[in-house]
Design a protein around this nucleic acid. Structure first.
Length: 128
DNA sequence: GCATTGACGAAGG
DNA sequence: CCCTTCGCCAATG
């Protein structure tokens, strides 16, 4: 696995190329989240070796909207399982609707059985 | 350019 | 426990 730190060693953090790679990596991982499962911003950042840059994962997913690519951003929630990003979808209810469509139930703005549905890329992708 | 703002999360009080 | 602070860093004003 390629960490962001490794990328940083080659490219300055301010480099456009480095940013682009980071976004691409985030989208790539997000696409691997199976239907009916969810993960967190921090888990993705951690997998990319950028443990403390969870906020940038949110930015990357935000960029995915007008990127033209199909990124299941609704499967990424915060570390408590809350739908903190739902306001950034086309409608305020779209994120929850997309989750419900794949049998992921939401109550009080939070994914039900979050721990059971949690998909950790660090674990799931390191074995494959 | 500097200050503020977040789809975050850990640590400290 | 809950609330605040802090590190993080691209984007925005």
């Amino acid at each position: 696995m390629k960490s962001l730190k490794t990328e940083k060693a080659k490219l300055p953090a301010t480099s456009k190329a480095a940013q682009f790679n980071f976004y691409q990596d985030v989208w790539s991982i997000t696409k691997k989240i199976p239907r009916g499962r969810v993960t967190s911003y921090g888990a993705i950042a951690n997998y990319l070796g950028a443990k403390s840059s969870a906020r940038l994962v949110g930015w990357a997913l935000n960029m995915s909207h007008h990127s033209g690519e199909k990124v299941p951003a609704h499967r990424v929630v915060n570390r408590n399982g809350m739908l903190s990003g739902k306001m950034h979808f086309a409608t305020p209810t779209l994120m929850e609707e997309l989750l419900l469509r794949e049998k992921t139930l939401v109550q009080n703005n939070k994914v039900m059985d979050f721990e059971k549905k949690f998909w950790d890329p660090m674990i799931e992708l390191s074995l494959g």
